[in-house]
Design a protein around this nucleic acid. Structure first.
Lengths: 247, 247
DNA sequence: TAGTGGTCTAGACCACGGG
DNA sequence: CCGTGGTCTAGACCACTAG
């Protein structure tokens, strides 16, 4: 064996080729889960490349979850396990950033007195005014998801109108003028859809949906946006592929 | 400003310090979302470090989702968006690898004729025999989740018994002797708990749960494990923090 | 064409793990 | 102690983007 790497211009980067070679060794079982792969210095000599290059190659495999580096001990082929998986919200991201196919219909908007839940999260005093907005997000002329949003009401900054009027926007929390947020927390929950919600979303499925809850903070660490999305799961498949695919 | 980095032994790595410095600039708004941060070569000169070191520092920020590199153009501070988030199954992983607190109670096991669903997924012929196992996974003496598993039945390899007897195991699909899998797909779904399930799990909540469906493939790309976990969402909080936390 | 990030080298020393 | 991965340097050239 001992395949060689090409260093021609136009070919894939060397580190990338090396990553594929090692990946192939894992896929075929030449390198089995749990065992230690050759050390970086050995691999560097073997393939006649620099150490940094081999490190970068192995870095690719680490990111893909195929191997695990252990300082002072070695690099090991990982066993595939259920728990070591991540799910990304790519589907949601694609929809929310697709300015062409996106429409927003405001279902409800008003200034209310903060209840216990939203008041607590937004760190408001009791009975403080909050803006409540409910919107239906439509993608390619089909209902996609529902949003409920709470914002502290600041009479000096009437963001209400821009919220109301927007029918297509890149950021679904505030208006486009906002700088953004410093940080936030997101929570994913299973949530049975209520009748009214299912109707709005024109859902006929099993009524199971995801609830994506968010709290966002401004640059002064003040919570300034709280709310959630209700998304039928068919609209946002959460799939993750692990191990070696299409070597 | 222009903080200096320490290169003493025992202090944090330089790249790590640099990452924190830049992160701080983002947190305070000195570097605002959307704008370009100074080029790598400029930063290298500014902080009197090597280019590779600055690259590593920025690499940290890229992994954390704070900045985005654009080849030939620059590195930009990212705006926080709902869609660009990932959720990890750390909670589940911790439980399933906690050999001390883990118990498994087999609820049902038998060899059956493959139905349409599992037969199709496992690529079996009609009416081919499959092993069906239902188990209750218990953690720290409390019911944690339910597993349903389908395996192709191979009379030459009687894995049934090892499956049956295991009361604590690192890999919840097969016995410990197995090498592992080459690849797999996982799907996360919202699923209302059925009455019987809620009872087994001693759940009194809203009855909303996650369903984690898996299909695993051996090194010959044959599907060899299909099944799912039913996990009450309180047992597996899916939370993600984005942006700059605890600078 | 100038400036950016992307790849790569051939060294060096440090920090950790296990025998 | 030795071998491992982790950090770091001071260069080099390539590939891409934008003015």
């Amino acid at each position: 064996m001992e395949k060689a790497v090409e260093k021609k211009r136009g070919s894939l980067p060397v580190y990338s080729q090396l990553a594929m070679i090692i990946k192939e060794d894992i896929a075929t079982g030449r390198l089995q889960p749990g065992i230690r792969i050759p050390s970086e210095s050995k691999l560097a000599k073997q393939y006649n490349v620099s150490l940094m290059t081999i490190r970068q190659a192995i870095g690719v495999l680490v990111e893909e979850g195929l191997v695990k580096r252990v300082h002072g001990s070695g690099t090991f082929v990982r066993r595939i396990e259920v728990g070591s998986t991540t799910f990304g919200l790519d589907g949601l991201h694609n929809v929310l950033t697709d300015t062409n196919g996106l429409q927003v219909r405001v279902l409800q908007t008003n200034v209310a007195r903060a209840g216990g839940t939203e008041g607590g999260i937004l760190e408001l005093e009791e009975e403080a005014p909050v803006i409540l907005v409910k919107r239906l997000i439509i993608h390619n002329n089909r209902p996609f998801c529902l949003q409920t949003a709470y914002l502290p009401f600041d009479p000096r900054a009437p963001v209400v109108e821009s919220m109301l009027e927007t029918t297509g926007l890149s950021d679904l929390f505030f208006s486009k003028k906002q700088h953004g947020y410093k940080k936030g927390t997101l929570r994913l929950l299973p949530a049975p859809m209520e009748e009214q919600e299912a109707e709005l979303l024109q859902e006929e499925g099993d009524g199971a949906a995801f609830k994506l809850e968010y709290i966002y903070f401004d640059f002064k660490d003040k919570p300034c946006a709280y709310g959630w999305f209700i998304i039928p799961h068919e609209k946002m498949p959460l799939v993750s592929m692990v191990g070696v695919w299409n070597e």
